[in-house]
Amino acid sequence: MMLQQEDWTISCVPFYLVKRLGYHAVLLLAAVCLSYLLASLALDPRAYYEGRQPPLSPSAVDHHLTALGVNDHQPLRDRFLHWADRAFLHGDLGETIDGTPVDAEFGRRIGVSLRLLLAGTVLGTVAGVLLGAWTAVRQYRPSDRAVTLASFALLSTPVFLLAVLLKTGAIWFNQATGTDLIQFTGERSPGADGGLWTALKDRSVHLLLPTLSVALFSVASYSRYQRSTMLDVLGSDYLRTARAKGLGRRAVLLRHGLRTALIPMSTYFSYGFLALFTGATFTETIFGWHGMGEWFVNSIGKNDVNSVVAVNVFAAVTVLLSGFLADLLHAALDPRIRRAAS
């Protein structure tokens, strides 16, 4: 780009963002507390222990529940205060219903989920933005209509359905080629060893389908949004000015058009992450990744209050963080925001 954004006054940004961060912290606190209360009221860990084989004595059940801090014979207020004390003051989210520390499980699974989401998000966003801008320029032409229809069809397909279809396709592909090129169970092949290169290759082969199923949705939805914001910009006076200056078509569309049309996208970005997280729950379950989503589904089945709250904390933090990143992005893209905030 010829026009440079090099040294936008960083000094005025922090105050605005610090305030924003404070608001987010309050939201997070409220959300975490509410989700604890909700999970405690709705889930029934007692049923999990009572359903154990061989059966436990009532006192043993009580003992287990009290140890976890989820005994429904204690007042909810006490349980909550006890939990909040550990969680907020010591960063300790308690134990899972099977007695392992939640924090350890959390640490193990968070990486899995992030690996899955990150690649898909980045790929999907970039491809979606480019595709959207391209279709806007070609509005109502056959290529635009084809992309529109395809993205609607994609958006009308539930995540798990797409995942199953991808899987079916991969089986078919493997059978047809007589190889097992595409792997779709877990993060890596069990017992596969070899050098760094083999490991990397193995991982990326496993990553292919899950990433695709995450990315395809981002591509479909972002291309819709980008198309409409780009269409707004295409009719604008400043694009006409840029043409009147004698700039070439490429420069006009990319440097002036797309650059400005990116600004409203930052808002969609923060909302988009919400949907993505939900989608990841399915992707993980179907492709056998042991991430946060799978943990969540399992722990609801087990009436595991502490684990469920932990996943909620993760989800809330991710959503707020992505919202914060979207704010940063917005400020970076739009000089009007920067100055207004200073």
Partner: peptide
Amino acid sequence: GSRVAMVFQDPLSAFTPV
């Protein structure tokens, strides 16, 4: 721009805001 240049009516919307 080189031989024929143009001045538009609404100068706020005529400049790229970014």
